[in-house]
Amino acid sequence: MPALCWNQRRRDFYAITTDVSTEGIRFRSSSRLSPGEDLTCSIRHIGLLEARIDRAVGEEFTVSVRGGRSALTDLARQFVALSRAQDLRPEVVRVHHRIVPKQKIVQVTLDGGLGVSGHVLNISASGVALLVEQSLEIGATIQVGRKLARVMRHFTHGVGAAFLEPFEPSAVHEAMTL
């Protein structure tokens, strides 16, 4: 989180919080600071805090917050709440190349043996994206053509399914049929 810090002897300077722990708050700044300096810091979305510099090495410095461990605990809670509010989900890394096959219509067989028609949006060695009119539960095992797969995600009118036994990457091409 960005912070604006100052004291009576030093002009305002910017810093970025890099860690919050029982030791204090660690910042990074282009300003060169000295241990023992008192600071007032305004941290975006957190507020004002009074602190003392405990360590300063290169561009990093660590402060202890006035008010003791309870003040630091409250700050840590605020930082955790802010990080949760961001809802950062890691991006899915696609391992296998996806293609759109020429044969897009496929028979999808559900757990109970019911067969429905599916439309292949794309396919890779590890999975398939299908448009299906039937509601499928995440985790359900389905058969896509001759290949068993597990439903992993939903999207509008369709599902993403991972093959229980992936194809060899060389077997995935436009002319393939499931």
Rank of each mutant, 00 (worst) to 15 (best):
residue 127 G to Q: 00
residue 128 V to W: 00
residue 128 V to Q: 01
residue 128 V to I: 15
residue 128 V to H: 02
residue 128 V to S: 00
residue 128 V to R: 00
residue 129 A to H: 09
residue 130 L to Q: 00
residue 130 L to Y: 02
residue 130 L to R: 04
residue 132 V to N: 00
residue 132 V to D: 04
residue 132 V to P: 03
residue 132 V to R: 01
residue 132 V to T: 06
residue 132 V to H: 05
residue 132 V to Y: 00
residue 133 E to V: 07
residue 133 E to F: 10
residue 133 E to N: 14
residue 133 E to W: 07
residue 134 Q to W: 09
residue 134 Q to L: 07
residue 134 Q to V: 14
residue 134 Q to R: 15
residue 134 Q to T: 14
residue 134 Q to C: 09
residue 134 Q to H: 13
residue 135 S to W: 04
residue 135 S to C: 09
residue 137 E to G: 15
residue 137 E to R: 13
residue 137 E to S: 15
residue 138 I to E: 11
residue 138 I to K: 13
residue 139 G to P: 00
residue 139 G to T: 06
residue 139 G to L: 04
residue 139 G to S: 06
residue 140 A to D: 10
residue 140 A to L: 09
residue 141 T to M: 11
residue 141 T to W: 10
residue 141 T to H: 12
residue 141 T to G: 08
residue 141 T to F: 11
residue 142 I to M: 05
residue 142 I to W: 03
residue 142 I to F: 04
residue 143 Q to D: 08
residue 143 Q to T: 15
residue 143 Q to G: 02
residue 145 G to A: 03
residue 145 G to S: 05
residue 145 G to Q: 07
residue 145 G to H: 03
residue 146 R to Y: 12
residue 147 K to G: 06
residue 147 K to P: 04
residue 148 L to P: 08
residue 149 A to Y: 03
residue 151 V to S: 02
residue 152 M to K: 14
residue 153 R to Y: 10
residue 153 R to N: 13
residue 154 H to L: 11
residue 154 H to Y: 04
residue 155 F to I: 08
residue 155 F to Y: 11
residue 155 F to T: 01
residue 156 T to E: 12
residue 157 H to L: 14
residue 157 H to I: 09
residue 159 V to S: 02
residue 159 V to W: 04
residue 159 V to F: 01
residue 159 V to L: 06
residue 159 V to T: 07
residue 160 G to H: 05
residue 160 G to C: 11
residue 161 A to V: 07
residue 161 A to K: 02
residue 162 A to Q: 11
residue 163 F to G: 04
residue 163 F to C: 01
residue 163 F to A: 05
residue 164 L to A: 08
residue 165 E to H: 14
residue 165 E to G: 05
residue 165 E to R: 15
residue 167 F to G: 05
residue 167 F to C: 05
residue 168 E to Q: 12
residue 170 S to W: 13
residue 171 A to T: 09
residue 171 A to M: 12
residue 171 A to R: 11
residue 172 V to L: 04
residue 172 V to R: 04
residue 173 H to N: 13
residue 173 H to G: 08
